[in-house]
């Protein structure tokens, strides 16, 4: 559980000031040349964890067993925590005074930069578990590389997130193997989930000009360089789970440049309702 600060005092503001003063110096944050690409890339990170966290939180109170309900919520909480860090840094880099909340709650769908996989609806626990595993395996590889980022701020966030994501991937791997090799019904549901999700996985590895700028600056690896390690792990796990990688080689792409599925609009209309209905209110 994240520790909660005492919000009945002005402690929060004080803590924020202290945190800001202690902030590691990072020349990338103020580099005007890489600014647009860095901002864009940070939105890709933060939007992806935000939308997945939002999806997972839909399960809260509806899980198949109390233990699973609690575990799913822990993962959702971790991802929302990552979002605060990534989008917070995005706002700093952009340097136009936008906070993490403003980025999360006041941009429309075409401005969102999350990968498509995370906006696919929860479906049953098969889809949710498989989606989590396919993403965790990618997330883990990515964060591991980011701990060596030339941007100390990025490396710091990645190191913190990696601790949590190491557990996410351990857990989702375990569930995929168990459900794939469980009953005939659980096997079929996991295979169906994989068939639905597979064509959305390619979007995570699409690499464009933004990624090239990030790679050149040593801030982040180009996503296409992560695919081999990802695929090796995924194939191993699916094999153990007695599941078959679909033949369908088609790849849906576009999430990272704002071309989304229809689902995102509904996610945002739900998530952003209050900020939109009561502009300027503080909560």
């Amino acid at each position: 559980m994240p520790s909660l600060s005492d919000m009945n005092t002005d402690e929060v503001t004080k803590l924020a000031d202290i945190a800001a003063a202690e902030q590691t110096h990072d020349a990338h944050v103020t580099n005007v040349e890489t600014r647009p690409a860095f901002f864009e890339w940070l939105c890709r990170m933060g939007d992806t964890t935000l939308i997945l966290g939002q999806r997972l939180s839909e399960w809260c109170g509806h899980g198949p067993a109390l233990e699973e309900d609690i575990a799913l919520t822990n993962t959702a909480l971790d991802l929302i925590g990552h979002t605060q860090l990534w989008l917070g840094l995005a706002g700093e880099v952009e340097n136009e005074g936008r906070s993490a909340d403003q980025l999360a709650f006041l941009r429309d769908a075409f401005k969102f930069r999350n990968v498509l996989l995370v906006e696919v609806p929860n479906g049953d626990m098969g889809v949710t578990t498989m989606r989590q595993f396919l993403f965790d395996a990618f997330h883990y590889e990515l964060l591991q590389r980011l701990t060596e980022s030339s941007s100390p701020r990025v490396a710091e966030i990645a190191a913190k997130a990696l601790k949590e994501v190491s557990y996410h991937v351990e857990r989702s791997t375990d569930l995929v193997v168990r459900l794939g090799d469980g009953t005939p019904e659980s096997h079929d549901r996991m295979q169906q989930a994989l068939d639905i999700l597979w064509s959305y996985t390619g979007d995570m590895f699409v690499s464009d000009g933004v990624d090239a700028t990030m790679a050149d600056a040593g801030i982040a690896p180009s996503p296409d360089t992560l695919r081999e390690a990802w695929l090796a792990r995924v194939e191993d796990v699916l094999d153990e789970a007695t599941l078959k990688v679909p033949d369908n080689a088609f790849v849906h792409t576009g999430g990272k440049t704002g071309k989304h599925t229809e689902h995102l609009g509904y996610i945002l209309s739900d998530m952003q309702f209050l900020q939109r209905a009561y502009p300027g209110a503080s909560w």
Binding site: A65, E67, I70, A71, N74, K163, E164
Partner: peptide, 23 residues
């Protein structure tokens, strides 16, 4: 206490339920 299908999952569930993932 908690429910789990086997010992390994009981340990994972315990991490989530009773330690909230403290290291």
């Amino acid at each position: 206490s908690l429910h789990a299908p086997d010992a390994e999952m009981a340990i994972n569930n315990a991490r989530d339920v009773y330690t909230r993932r403290k290291e």
